[in-house]
Design a protein around this nucleic acid. Structure first.
Length: 157
DNA sequence: GCCAACGTTGGC
DNA sequence: GCCAACGTTGGC
C-alpha cells in the first residue's frame, strides 16, 4: 500500500451535506461528471486516503469536516438510471464512463475552515482547489492537510 | 442572481 | 485535430 494521500471533495450542502454523511456513516460519492475529477478517483485514490469535505456554491464556501475513502473505484450506478439526472446515455455497463468511490464519515470540525480564511493563509496559496477551480475533486498536499486541521482546531474567534 | 472561467461538444 | 459555441460550476 502506498503512502496515504489527501483530497478535497466538494458537495453542495442542499444536495448532500456533512450532516447527511454523519447520519449515513458511509456513502457512494455519486454524480461526478468531470473527467479530471473522475480520473483522480479512478487512478489515484486508495482506500484509507483522507478527504476534506467542502461545501460549495453557497455564500460562504467552507471545509466542514473530513472523511476517508472506503472503497476502490467502481462504476457510478446512476449513469445507467434513466430516471437520474446523472444518467448518461453514452455510457454502458460494458464500458462505463463514470466511476466513483465510497467515503465514510470521520469528523465534523468544531471550527469549519472557510475559503476566505484559507485564502489568507500563505501556506495554502498553492492549493489545487484554487488552481483547478471547476473540479469537484482536487488533490491536497500533506502540509495543507495539516494546516487545515490546525485551523479547524484553533479556538474560535 | 450574475457572470467569468473553463471543461466539453461537435462542425468542419 | 482545431476551435467556436455551448453549458455548467461555483465564487462573489
Amino acid at each position: 500500500m502506498s503512502d496515504r494521500q489527501y483530497w478535497l471533495m466538494k458537495s453542495e450542502p442542499d444536495d448532500y451535506s456533512i450532516d447527511d454523511l454523519e447520519k449515513d456513516g458511509e456513502t457512494a460519492w455519486t454524480g461526478v461528471r468531470n473527467y479530471g475529477a473522475r480520473n483522480f478517483m479512478r487512478d489515484d485514490m486508495n482506500e484509507g486516503d483522507g478527504v476534506l469535505f467542502y461545501h460549495s456554491n453557497i455564500s460562504k464556501p467552507v471545509i466542514v469536516g473530513t472523511m476517508e475513502v472506503s472503497s476502490e473505484a467502481y462504476p457510478d450506478p446512476l449513469q445507467f438510471d434513466p430516471n437520474s439526472k446523472y444518467f448518461d446515455e453514452k455510457s454502458s455497463e460494458s464500458e462505463p464512463r463514470w466511476q466513483l468511490v465510497d467515503v465514510k464519515f470521520v469528523q465534523k470540525f468544531d471550527n469549519p475552515v472557510t475559503r476566505e480564511a484559507m485564502k489568507e493563509e500563505a501556506a495554502l496559496d498553492e492549493m489545487e482547489l484554487f488552481r483547478l477551480g471547476r473540479y469537484s475533486i482536487t488533490p491536497v498536499r500533506e502540509s495543507e492537510w495539516k494546516k487545515i486541521h490546525e485551523m479547524a482546531e484553533a479556538e474560535a474567534k
